[in-house]
Design a protein around this nucleic acid. Structure first.
Length: 832
RNA sequence: GCGGGUGUGGCGGAGCUGGCAGACGCAGAGGGCUUAAAACCCUCGGGGCCGCGAGGCCCGUGUGGGUUCGAACCCCACCACCCGCACCA
């Protein structure tokens, strides 16, 4: 294959890119020097922490990785050219189930499997020209990393924020491990889709609920997409209401209920306990019929539970404190033990679930509210027999004793006041958020650094004994947890407190979301043997200025990281309130309208595109396709088009060099002025687009500048103005396409790297226009265009507009009004 | 069910604070160069109508209304699609 077409060398990315990529990798060109722990950045511009969600090493990079890294790299390279000191680390979220499955199914060593994948991804990252800092690289499966994950666990344990308890937990039979609430989607395992069952197990939790209020209020000040903030708000699920005590009719127990509608209490005609409520369990102990019900309920999955309600009439009543009536008590599975108090007052008239259950069981629907319209006018009374659903709209109280006639909002306030005055309860804020279940019965994860002693119970492994290392010889062919069945790991330990030789190690590992909840702190000093991170350095770099990653982490990872930072702040390890100030969710790369997958046969991998067109074309195609947060359908985009444009940039640059050397004439004055102005405009506009991270429109500006150079040099001219245009073009293209710009920068005769240049600044004097085109409208319709001196006043505009022949033809009727906006338009309002 | 978002040419997408809709591309058509093809270069391009032509007129940003001199943009209602939450009391 010839490298020459005509007399200009062809653009051949496959030849020019690899050597540059290798040089950058070998020379660690993009490492922050000095490193992040250096104090020098205190004296310079504010340091900038740019972070991208680190990859999971399951095979080679896919298009989604290329998308996130390309957006992120354009951002980072642009910032560096603006003189910012940018920390841009990379690492791997390297613990997790796929490695274990590879071990189980193919006999692979999980460690070897993981590191092989990391090596592959690492070389692809280098080939694609992403400017990560290889000096701070980390892998969460390295003992020197998870040693500090274990330290973090112990810090939380010491603070009472990590604890162990028995609870009904989500269990995935396929993954044979428990899951956090956040990992259960529609009653199914987020990972494998298997229906999750609820089982009582003793597990480790992080007390994230202690930070519920702050996790909610802190969202207000974050520069995150609204949908992510809304997801977190919904997940935290704050509600305001009251906790009210209902005594049992025999006065032996006082049952607390939580309600957001205390105003409806006069309509509470029955009472419901969660089937596992402790008072019910105590009272019903030994009752075979109830045991049978309980068993049936436990067997029902969440999915089945939502399909229909079951209930059990308990052999006792409770008292409605407001009416003094005895009302029947039920156990029913539509009341959940782990929300509120696990018991409710049931108001069929005002709550759809209570209504359905009342109809099913033939219970009274008592009317205590009369609907009102939008202006407060009374509407028709509710009919208890004819109602087909609960009424949840506005209204005034009826059948509610002293509260009759009040609006429901007013009644709510007064009833809460009375509850408090009489000592029947208190106003109460509730959240839906549960504590984070972090233990997993898996073996490719960070071991929980706890020893269970028959006498001392749960004892922390002393810090000097960390890390608690995973054994190298786990047997993944066993059923259940390999770590649990590794005798040496489990039993070769004595109690750190009393020396009891019968102590055993905790055989669970931590959720991989624990690993990723603090990695952005470890990047600051990944080889520090003394501490997880230096507090002063963390305080200087956090919060992360810009975090880029997928929206699938809207709740899980992003909420956990926020919790960890707040908990660490309260222990004095960092002074930031939040981990990530700004968040960018890149869109997905899909194919023909569907997610890419091998089984669908619509998989495109970055390597394929790179082998055909090179990395610059892949990067440019992705950024030009749409705004970073929009999805890209690969079937709709054109690497060919991007390659064509880059070839044109290549040819124009080489031609310019050749012409300059051959002594070609400079541009004529008029052409030079036009090109100079086009360059200034392109710099001004593209800079704005880059600042706003709208790379698609930024590239459009660069294409326009390319077309201007093409037009200006068609007759073979060269000269300084052309050189300046090309230099500006290459500098601004550099963050998008780092290879071709590096190569051409050198070939244009410049020393050093284009990536070390300062971002170009537009010559402001060239941006000022002498003349502007003003649109002339008649009754809002464009009827002409006039060219006028910039800044012409209204009178002048009107005069010039009237003089326009075409416009005059439309001004037959009476001109009743003239709107003139300088430099923009004139609009004549004509009557008749 | 509740909450949030998005609808612009054949396609991806531009469109700033309410002021020329369709920037920049892709695909397409026509032409140039070439023995030929590729590559490259030029021209055209929302729809309809009138005109030999320069050009002109009407319609057009999911649908229907409204506000305004003027609406893709603001307001109301509706339709479609996407996302999140969902027995949370």
């Amino acid at each position: 294959m010839s490298n020459v077409a005509g007399d200009t060398e062809r653009y051949d990315p496959l030849t020019i890119e690899p050597p540059i990529a290798e040089r950058w990798a070998e020379e660690r060109t993009y490492s922050l020097r000095p490193g992040p722990t250096a104090r020098e950045d205190e004296d310079t511009d504010a340091p900038y922490y740019a972070l991208t969600m680190f990859p999971y090493p399951s095979g080679d990079l896919h298009m989604g990785h290329a998308e996130i890294f390309t957006i992120h790299d354009a951002l980072v390279r642009h910032l560096r050219m603006q003189g910012r000191r940018v920390l841009n680390p990379i690492g791997w979220d390297a613990f997790g189930l796929p490695a274990e499955n590879a071990a189980r199914n193919r006999g692979a060593d999980p460690k070897a499997w993981t590191y092989a994948n990391i090596d592959e991804q690492r070389s692809t990252i280098a080939r694609l020209g992403y400017s990560f800092d290889w000096d701070t690289v980390l892998h969460t499966c390295d003992p020197e990393y998870y040693r500090w994950t274990q330290w973090l666990f112990l810090a939380l344990f010491d603070a009472g924020l990590a604890y162990r308890r028995e609870a009904l937990v989500n269990f995935c039979p396929s993954c044979s491990t428990v899951l956090a609430n956040e990992q259960v989607v529609d009653g199914r395992c987020e990972r494998c889709g298997t229906e999750v069952s609820r089982q009582p197990r003793t597990q480790w939790f992080f007390r994230i609920t202690a930070y519920a209020d702050e996790l909610l209020s802190g969202l207000d000040d974050l520069d995150w997409p609204d949908r992510v903030k809304n997801s977190q708000r919904a997940w935290i699920g704050r509600s305001e209401g009251a906790e009210i005590v209902f005594p049992t009719a025999d006065r032996e127990d006082e049952i607390h209920v939580y309600t957001t509608r205390p105003d409806t209490i006069f309509g509470a005609t029955y009472f419901v306990f969660a089937p596992e409520h402790p008072v019910v369990l105590r009272r019903m102990a030994g009752d075979r019929a109830y045991d049978a019900y309980l068993e049936e309920v436990t067997r029902r999955s969440d999915v089945e539970r939502q399909a229909g309600k079951t209930g059990y009439r308990l052999p006792f009543d409770v008292v409605n404190p407001f009416t003094g009536e005895d009302i029947p008590a039920y156990a029913a599975d539509y009341v959940l033990m782990d929300y509120g108090t696990g018991a409710i007052m049931a108001v069929p008239v005002g709550d759809q679930r209570d209504f359905e259950f009342a109809r099913q069981e033939g219970l009274e629907v008592r009317i205590i509210i009369r609907p009102t319209g939008p202006d407060g006018e009374l509407l028709a009374e509710l009919d208890p027999e004819g109602m087909t659903e609960a009424y949840t709209g506005p209204g005034v109280m009826v059948n509610s004793g002293p509260y009759d006639g009040l609006s429901w909002e007013e009644a709510k306030e007064r009833i809460i006041a009375e509850v408090e005055a009489k000592g029947w309860g208190t106003a109460k804020v509730n959240t839906r958020l549960r504590d984070w279940l972090i233990s997993r019965q898996r073996s490719w994860g960070a071991p929980i650094p706890i020893v269970h002693c028959p006498t001392c119970k749960e004892v922390a492994v002393p810090e000097e004994d960390l890390p608690v290392e995973l054994p190298d010889d786990l047997d993944f062919t066993v059923a259940g947890s390999p770590l649990d069945q590794h005798a040496a790991f489990k039993h070769d330990v004595v109690c750190p407190r009393c020396g009891n030789p019968d102590a055993t190690r905790d055989v669970d590992t931590m959720d991989t979301f624990v690993d990723s909840s603090w990695y952005f702190l470890r990047y600051l000093s990944p080889t520090d043997h003394e501490q997880a991170w230096p507090a002063d350095v963390a305080s200087r770099w956090l919060p992360v200025d810009q975090y880029t990653g997928g929206v699938e982490h809207a709740v899980l990872h992003l909420l956990y990281s926020r919790f960890v930072v707040k908990a660490m702040r309260d222990r004095g390890h960092v002074d930031a309130d939040e981990p990530f100030q700004a968040l960018l969710n890149q869109g997905q790369v899909i194919m023909d309208g569907a997610a890419m997958s091998k089984s669908k046969g619509n998989l495109v991998v970055p390597g394929e595109v790179t082998e055909n067109y090179g990395a610059d074309t892949l990067r440019g195609t992705m950024l030009f396709a749409s705004a970073p947060e929009d999805d890209i359908d690969w079937a709709d985009v054109s690497p060919t088009g991007m390659h064509k444009w880059l070839s044109r940039v290549w040819r124009l640059s080489l031609e310019h060099t050749a012409r300059r050397q051959a002594g070609a004439p400079a541009l004529a004055d008029a052409a030079a002025a036009t090109l100079q102005r086009a360059t200034a405009v392109a710099i001004a506009r593209a800079s704005e687009e880059f600042d706003a991270r709208k790379y698609n429109t930024a590239i459009a500006q660069l294409m326009t500048l390319t077309n201007a150079v093409l037009d200006a040099t068609r007759d073979g001219a060269a000269g300084a103005v052309v050189g300046e245009a090309l230099e500006a073009l290459l500098k601004m293209l550099a963050p998008v396409c780092p290879f071709i710009t590096e190569e051409l920068w050198t070939r244009l005769g410049h020393p050093g790297s284009v990536h070390d240049q300062r971002w170009p600044v537009a010559d402001a004097s060239l941006l000022v226009e002498d003349e502007v085109e003003v649109v002339v409208q008649v009754n809002g319709k464009v009827r002409g265009r006039i060219t006028v001196p910039a800044g012409s006043d209204r009178t002048a505009l009107e005069h010039l507009a009237r003089a326009d022949e075409r416009v005059a033809g439309h001004l037959a009727g009476e001109v009743v009004k003239v709107i003139a906006v300088p430099d923009k338009l004139v609009n004549f309002v004509v009557k008749g």
